[in-house]
Simulated assay, not measured.
Amino acid sequence: MYEKDGEKYFIVDSHMHFWDASRDNWVEGREQYAKGWIDCFFGYHQLAPPTTHWEWDKYLKVSADDLMRDVFEEGYVDKAIFQSTYLKYWYKNGFNTVEQNGAMLEAHPDKFIVNGRFDPRDGEAGLRQLEEDASRWNLKGVKVYTAEWHENGSRGWKLSDEESYPFLEKCRELGIRNIHAHKGPTIWPLNKDAFSMEDVDQAATDFPDLNFVIEHAGIPRIDDFAYMAVQEPNVYAGLSVVIGGLMHARPKFFAKVIGELLFWVGEDRLTFGSDYNIWTPKWQVEGFVDWQMPDDEAFADYPRLTTATKKKILGLNAAKLYGIDVPAECRLPEEPNIPQQQPGEQLLTESAAAGAGQA
């Protein structure tokens, strides 16, 4: 929990990792990919305040004690959600698997939620594995990497692929409601186009009872994401990388991204994620609570962030998606149950009222 100026913030880190990029885990003959991947992550690490930077060797694999200190003891996080990322094409035991994360859950059951993963190119074996993981770890969400390389030679897939739908249907059957998809920032050697978000539009329409949390909000293609997400009420913007990668290093672009998301998508569909251990959560939580939209004409038409807005983004929105109990002192007052308008509906209402006045 974070407290500032008498306000208490319940923090849900909805996008974090416990990875193993150590040299011993590099696949022989594919070391250049394993090293290139973590080097790219380390480049993103430099976008944080210099006082938070680590040495490269430490970055390859943090200890469980490091994680607990950085995230919970110093980072203010109340509940953390692991997002699994396999990358077994160049990491022998996987980069960050359900099993790695599950071990932390078993050691600290009150601190973590573990998300699974699926890859439609795994076929029936993948469906069986998803069922096993859901049973063992009580999955409420999955993370998909549509640009991941596969042993069959494929370098990407789409949520809208015919082969993907049995996996989304299986998620529905198993009660897995939250589909987290990496869309936006390119990580070498994966292909940029395989991280594009056009497939989200169709999948979200066809599975309205699932929540599609688009991690990194498609940046830098923020306009494409915002215009798509406003049409799909079950699409959320995960702010991992948005806050960690932009708030300190690109403050004006950060203001644009947050402004567009608030204007089009709204404060109820944005979720915080530190992307640990690309970055630690402490400086992100502190900085975001203090942050205000610039008092500049270029940002005048963007919504202002209130304390309630920041509480929702930093934890309350993710808590609602995952059924996490929030302490009474961190909750917001109950809002009236007003039917949600469809995009553009308020414009039609205003136009009709204006026409009646003229008559």
Rank of each mutant, 00 (worst) to 15 (best):
E215R: 08
A147K: 05
N138H: 11
V326K: 09
I176A: 07
N234T: 03
E335W: 12
E329H: 14
E173R: 01
N101M: 11
V98Q: 03
A226R: 03
L261G: 09
E335K: 15
K310I: 02
G259R: 08
N234W: 11
S14V: 06
E163R: 02
I278Q: 06
G94N: 09
Q100R: 10
W291V: 05
G273C: 14
D57F: 08
R221N: 15
G102I: 10
L174W: 15
G355Q: 15
I11D: 00
P220D: 06
I313S: 12
Q358C: 13
Q284L: 10
D119C: 02
A298P: 00
V27M: 01
G94Y: 00
G315H: 03
G156T: 12
F42L: 05
G218S: 14
E267F: 09
G126P: 06
P208W: 07
N93H: 10
S84H: 01
L139E: 04
S196V: 04
E131K: 05
H108C: 02
Q46Y: 14
R177N: 10
N93I: 00
A318S: 15
K192D: 07
A237M: 15
P208R: 00
D78T: 14
H248G: 14
R23D: 05
Q83R: 13
L174M: 05
K8A: 11
A125N: 07
T85S: 09
N93E: 13
A134F: 07
S160F: 13
D5M: 07
T309I: 08
A48T: 09
L210I: 03
D209A: 08
K58I: 08
D296T: 10
R331F: 13
E297N: 11
E73S: 11
C40G: 12
Y89A: 00
L332A: 04
S135H: 14
A217H: 07
N96S: 12
W54H: 04
Q231I: 04
A103P: 03
R177E: 08
A21T: 04
L130T: 08
A194F: 02
G123R: 01
D24A: 08
Y76N: 01
D57M: 10
G126H: 01
E28C: 03
D70A: 04
E163G: 00
I222G: 11
D39F: 06
A107E: 12
I243E: 11
F82M: 07
I222H: 10
N337G: 06
L190S: 05
N138G: 13
E3S: 09
L87G: 00
L105R: 11
P333L: 11
L174T: 04
Q32L: 02
V242D: 02
N234H: 09
F263A: 12
G344S: 10
G323H: 13
D78M: 05
Q284V: 15
T51M: 13
L67P: 03
K92G: 07
E148R: 00
F10A: 01
Y44N: 02
A21E: 01
N191T: 05
G6F: 00
Y302C: 14
P281I: 15
Q100K: 06
D223R: 12
A237Y: 14
K58Y: 08
A300D: 10
T271R: 06
H150G: 11
I38L: 04
G218D: 05
N317Y: 07
F167K: 07
V200G: 00
N317G: 14
T85W: 08
K310R: 15
